[in-house]
Design a protein around this nucleic acid. Sequence first.
DNA 1: TCCGGTCATGGAACCGCTTCCAAAGGGTTG
DNA 2: CAACCCTTTGGAAGCGGTTCCATGACCGGA
Lengths: 329, 329
Amino acid sequence: MTATIYDVAQRAGVGIATVSRALRGSGSVRPETRERILRAAEELHFTPSRLGVSLAQGRHAANGIVFPNLSAPYYAEVLLGYEEVTSELGRSVIILSAGGRGVTPEQVRDLAGRVDGLVVHGRTVPADLLAELVDGGLPTVLLAGAPVAGADLLTTENTGSARLLAEHLLGHGLRRLAFLGGPSGGPDVDERWSAVAAALAAAGAPPPRPAPLTEYGVAAARRAALDLLAGPDRPEALVCAHDEVALGALAAARELGLDVPGDLAVTGWDDIMAAEHSWPPLTTVRQPLRLLGATAARALDELVSGARAEPGHRILPTELVLRSSCGCR
Amino acid sequence: MTATIYDVAQRAGVGIATVSRALRGSGSVRPETRERILRAAEELHFTPSRLGVSLAQGRHAANGIVFPNLSAPYYAEVLLGYEEVTSELGRSVIILSAGGRGVTPEQVRDLAGRVDGLVVHGRTVPADLLAELVDGGLPTVLLAGAPVAGADLLTTENTGSARLLAEHLLGHGLRRLAFLGGPSGGPDVDERWSAVAAALAAAGAPPPRPAPLTEYGVAAARRAALDLLAGPDRPEALVCAHDEVALGALAAARELGLDVPGDLAVTGWDDIMAAEHSWPPLTTVRQPLRLLGATAARALDELVSGARAEPGHRILPTELVLRSSCGCR
DNA sequence: TCCGGTCATGGAACCGCTTCCAAAGGGTTG
DNA sequence: CAACCCTTTGGAAGCGGTTCCATGACCGGA
């Protein structure tokens, strides 16, 4: 089928070792010989088999990433940053998305067997399986999950920004808050919930009303918000677990004829693109999504290349973004 | 480091051939022998090396996809559908994103060497390189691009929906249209442009005003829309090349104090998530994005598995989605 | 002129698996 | 009892590279 190194060697009248040297520039090859080999390779459209190279070198030159769901802009953006850097480092990116159905251990193991290192989004892979891979020597970076011994951890700041957000809402005179999507929306969401609750308590405001979600997505959030807002004792502000939840809340408010922020303040988290273009524009907390992916890629590369041996924990800063859904302007 | 098939064979006291048979269920193995092998494999945490398997089988069990940019919701959604199906078919997904900077021929060749088949988004890969790969026997599906001999082509319907859209706007009494993002926004966008122009001509309306964009993204579209709308002879309706352009147009209109749809109608294309949640909600043409990715994955699988030899061209239907940015309601 | 050293090169081992082929052992049938 | 077949098994040949090591040619210095 396609040409192998043997074909090139034969055509150039040399051994395969010399072809390898000439093509990858290792070892010394006489200029004329090199020339002859290059020409032969050219004529045969020779491209070294990735499998052969990888097998011989013992490395894949590929990194993997596992995440829950691509339809969430959050993950798309993180993946973008990850792909960009990984690609820059000369490695391929293999993805595995849970997509609602979840990933199977076989899928994860298969992925692990194709890469030199892995980035895993929190809660997509069971902790014991993760531990097994890490113990097996696979360089691993955890993104926004619970720590696992031997793996890098990369998270974003939650508590401080959540407190700022809560205090900002209190500053608008809002005291009766509900937290849509929490608690139990994952470690990150729960951290935000706790910080909001603490800020309210500190200000002597009533504790936030919990409003957990069972499903992901704007539509599910909208339904939950409809229930919450149409029910008794409507909150003055809806702090949402993330922007998509907030978009659902905005839709619900609109349907109920509630003015945002006049009748109800709404806030998100993440600052996805749609947050800026919603109506009203969403007050939210910006996560450096692209940077998150890029940083994960760099951290993983350090582990894979051996530049760093000890796993660490890095926390990227977040930033309160004030638009009008909270009552500003 | 990690156990190989030799280790398992030795521990079980058999040859590697028997281990291979026992583990993959091919050939016949005496039950007790099989049992012994399975136990040995278990004890050694043996996982067959993907490289070894692939090299021996001559297949990667992986498919690739090349696309322009993940930050556009359009591609994220297509990738989602693609990953879902490909994963279901038991194959890994390797991605390569141009991300503004464009893909290099080396990157594409490297990717091609890692997969059994490739899905390529139009215009991300130069036609000659694409032809080289296809000629080299790589099963390829083109997504929304210009046809390449030997490759599958998968597109979405443009002309009919664009005509419907234009006629709908005419039905609102709008006649002076501008087309933001065209012509020369790629084959798809140009098809839409032509169909809109034809519909206007058929109705005796003036031809659409061209307003090409040089850059991708909401921000660039907003700037272009500001220029266009603040300039003389403001159009009554802005037909946008896709939803992100339309979101930029909406932002521009808001800044200029123009009421949409009162002073200006705006339409998009694609029906990304943000289109429904913008203000006003965007009238647009829905592309079955997820289905597009899923269909590409299935088509590619047919080519890879040999179920189909001849390349074909499939066109997925689109659908006009009326919201309020066009003047409806 | 002889010798140690450098350069260029090829043979062969190796990476980890699948699978063809040969062979051994046991059972069945004529 | 012999011929034959089927089951079970192992050896070995790939798959396509990289790289260690040995070899030979050529060079300059003693």
